[in-house]
Write a protein that binds this DNA or RNA. Structure first.
Ligand SMILES: Nc1nc2c(ncn2[C@H]2C[C@H](O)[C@@H](COP(=O)(O)OP(=O)(O)OP(=O)(O)O)O2)c(=O)[nH]1
Ligand SMILES: [Mg+2]
Ligand SMILES: [Mg+2]
Ligand SMILES: [Zn+2]
Length: 572
DNA sequence: GCCGTTTTCGGCCCGACTGTTTTCAGTCG
């Protein structure tokens, strides 16, 4: 099951690959690849963007690609792709997914041996015919056979949260080496993308030999993909790929800039350098032979008359222009958070008691903390009925009165939005809560129109403060349900409802693109952990990462405000 | 196909590693 964005990206990707293979034009396929990347990292429903007629506002999408996308959304058809597939009947997506196999190899294999898919390639590799092709020796064939297996296993991306744990292990192993002066995680992990394709690690060191040796010799390494003097790659037993780049001190800033990406951000920056008669690469910024900058990443941006761009924004979505104008946002930082407005206890499906959760919140020096267990229709989560909710309200009153905690404990609930958009708890009881979060937990496959009406209706309930995980996505598992977010935003604005940024590493919902649109639509955001245990309170960090990717500032986020201001802002 | 304080035409980022190759094309970052 794919989201529309993923479908559209795949269409563009496949056209790009087929054009690559035809080899007629070097640059046209690049445009399709760039378009595919742009849609993949859009972080907003492409259907919505198309409906607003704003596809060509996306960098890399022009009239041509916009037409293909619109047509695909409206009819499900892509004549250009059908035509290409007829001319070049190759399953490019699966063949080119093999490491080491690119367009030239696919074309050669097709022309000489009629290879069109993994199966026919495997046969040719096994019966010896493949190694007869020019440029393909026994080593290549062996690598291809291994590659076929990996493709069949299905290469998934990895959740940022999981990847960062793995990164820390590798970083600490390498940091222990005496010749290592600096070491940084770069790539999409440094940009805090919610999922990463691999880990990219940059080292500043004098002695590259020992570094590379240690790196490829790490216990978790399953396969060494490349080993050079400045760059090596391995695949771990977990199948996660790690790229290591070693760069000398005087180039470390340029190396970090390069290795952080994104590709499109890099290409744009390098083009700007070019136009200024300069050259930017991972070793520095050069005027002719002379290195102008390189040690400090910041100085490279400043050389272009830009302010330093926070890695989370480096996606070529307007950040370069904003850096030139000096109008980059002052992004939210973790220390600005004053409380968590969505947490669970063992009253519903949480693991810890209410007191354990409050103690943990106190340790995090919060000023307020909302307990918001599930309500009755979520039976699978042991949701509370009115009676239990009322008892909970009284309990929190007593806890606040006890004076055991400096922090204010807010009375909340995560109330289920029913099939008809009504809530499963009476207004009477809702009125006694400080914070009401309304969430969809059922019937997520209903049509877009139904889902939109359902959510909008719930937001019109005058006791609802926050819409919980507004699109219901589960990363690597379930795409967002279909919903017209612009309509939701409009109703939310009218009714003073806040959008949640659910900080669970598998949700991060709203995502970056939608956060940006929500704020543009005049809404505020609550960054909430939805913690089901004490440990999960630390997921706030991932929420802040995503908020930064959504260009959010402190003021956009409701739980950076003091208790007093918070309560005033949520008032209907 | 995209895009614009050097252009609406004519450019399009730049470098490392591998294999099989006699000097580099292909692939990947
Ligand atoms: N200038 C330039 N830099 C590139 C290119 N490809 C990759 N890079 C840089 C920017 C990337 O962020 C960085 C790491 O490459 P990756 O392929 O791992 O991409 P990234 O980490 O951004 O995304 P990922 O989550 O791994 O798919 O290397 C390129 O074609 N040109
Ligand atoms: Mg990467
Ligand atoms: Mg990489
Ligand atoms: Zn919840």
């Amino acid at each position: 099951m794919l989201s529309k964005n993923a479908e559209v990206a795949q269409v563009l990707e496949e056209i790009g690959l087929l054009l690559d293979i035809e080899g007629k034009d070097r640059f046209r396929p690049l445009a399709y690849h760039r378009g595919a990347r742009a849609i993949k990292s859009l972080g907003e429903d492409v259907v919505e963007v198309a409906r607003r007629n704003e596809l060509t506002k996306i960098p890399g999408i022009g009239k041509g690609l916009a037409k293909i996308i619109t047509n695909y959304i409206e009819t499900g058809q892509v004549p250009k792709l059908d035509e290409l597939r007829t001319r070049v009947p190759i399953k490019v997506m699966e063949l080119m997914a093999i490491r080491g196999v690119g367009p030239r190899t696919v074309k050669l294999m097709y022309d000489k041996l009629g290879i069109t898919d993994l199966e026919s390639l495997e046969r040719a590799a096994s019966d010896g015919s493949l190694s007869q092709l020019p440029g393909l020796g026994d080593r290549s064939v062996k690598q291809i056979l291994q590659g076929i297996e990996l493709v069949r296993q299905g290469l998934e991306r990895t959740l940022l949260a999981d990847a960062l744990i793995e990164a820390e292990k590798i970083v600490s192993a390498l940091r222990a080496l005496p010749s290592v002066r600096q070491i940084e995680v770069a790539g999409s992990a440094r940009r805090r993308r919610e999922t990463v394709g691999d880990l990219d690690i940059l080292v500043n060191a004098s002695d590259t030999e020992t570094i590379m040796g240690t790196f490829v010799g790490l216990e978790s390494v399953a396969e060494v993909l490349a080993r050079g003097t400045t760059k090596s790659s391995v695949r771990l037993t977990s199948n996660l790929q790690i790229d290591l780049r070693v760069i000398p001190a005087e180039s470390f800033g340029a190396g970090l800039q390069y290795f952080t990406g994104s590709v499109d951000h890099n290409v744009k920056l390098r083009s700007i350098a070019q136009k200024m008669g300069l050259k930017l690469n991972e070793y520095g910024l050069f005027r002719g032979e002379e290195k102008v900058e390189g040690r400090e990443e910041r100085a490279i941006y400043e050389s272009f008359g830009m302010t330093w761009v926070p890695p989370e924004l480096r996606e070529d979505r307007g950040e370069i222009e904003a850096a030139q104008d000096g109008t980059l946002p002052d992004l939210i930082t973790p220390d600005a958070v004053r409380g968590d407005l969505h947490t669970h206890t063992d009253q519903s499906d949480g693991r810890n008691t209410i007191e354990e959760m409050i103690d943990a919140a106190q340790e995090r020096e919060y000023e307020y903390f909302c307990i918001s267990d599930h309500t009755k229709s979520l039976t699978i989560a042991n949701g509370m009925d009115e009676e239990r909710l009322e008892a909970r309200i009284n309990e929190i009153d007593r806890l606040n009165e006890s004076g055991r905690w400096k922090m204010r404990i807010l009375k909340g609930a995560e109330v289920d939005i029913l099939q008809d958009g009504e809530l499963d708890i009476s207004d009477d009881l809702l009125s006694r809560l400080d914070i009401v979060t309304a969430s969809i937990h059922s019937r997520m496959n209903d049509s877009k129109r139904v889902m939109t009406e359902r959510v909008c209706h719930a937001l019109e309930n005058k006791f609802v403060h926050i819409l919980g995980h507004p699109t219901g996505r589960l990363l690597l598992k379930r795409p967002p349900f279909e919903i017209d977010l612009s309509a939701v935003f409009e109703v939310a604005r009218k009714n003073n409802v806040i959008m949640e940024l659910n900080a669970h590493p598998q949700r991060l919902d709203l995502n970056a693109g939608n956060l940006r649109s929500a704020v543009r639509a005049g809404l505020r955001i609550a960054v909430n952990t939805d913690a089901h245990s004490v440990a999960e309170l630390d997921n706030m960090t991932f929420g802040i990462y995503q908020a930064r990717r959504g260009w959010l500032t402190k003021d956009d986020i409701i739980n950076t405000h003091t208790l007093k201001k918070l309560l005033r802002l949520i008032k209907k």
